[in-house]
């Protein structure tokens, strides 16, 4: 009973941290566009947070560059459990067009575990919302 209440709360209130790991800004502006009046993710309780300490879901965009790697791990460790990582955009999923460049390590999953992949170049806000909602549905399934 208590656990199901907690699960319900987690599904209803995912606070996201937006973290650009070397993206071209396209996915970033689409993540931000999801907050604005046309898409308005606050309907689903999604709030953008500034610090990893307050966040539940880390929304990563872009391939991981060599310089960003250590910071990415640090941000991941700073986030309190339970935490989820969503890779937004093709680059974040696999490295995309940057795959094989000397300064790019590839997708987010090369560095930290990823829970959901949202492909697209750039991923549309609708797709981002859909991805986060599917992640939460998975969460609910895991609990039930």
């Amino acid at each position: 009973m208590f656990q199901s209440l907690v699960n319900w709360a987690r599904v209803k209130s995912p606070w996201i941290l937006h973290w650009n790991t070397g993206a071209c800004n396209a996915c970033d502006i689409e993540v931000l566009a999801a907050l604005t009046p046309r898409f308005d993710v606050e309907r689903f309780g999604i709030l953008l947070q500034g610090t990893p300490r307050h966040a539940d879901v880390i929304v990563c965009t872009g391939p991981v560059t060599r310089q960003v790697k250590d910071r990415l791990i640090r941000v991941y460790n700073q986030t309190p459990d339970p935490k989820f990582v969503v890779a937004v955009g093709t680059c974040a999923c696999s490295g995309g067009v940057f795959r094989g460049n000397y300064n790019v390590l590839g997708g987010i999953d090369q560095v930290i575990p990823v829970d959901a992949y949202i492909p697209g170049c750039a991923a549309r806000p609708d797709a981002i919302i859909d991805g986060v909602v599917k992640l939460l549905a998975k969460l609910q399934g895991k609990a039930g």
Partner: peptide, 11 residues
């Protein structure tokens, strides 16, 4: 700067 360096010109 340089966190976002991806090595585009080379590739």
């Amino acid at each position: 700067i340089g966190y976002n360096h991806r090595g585009m010109e080379k590739s």
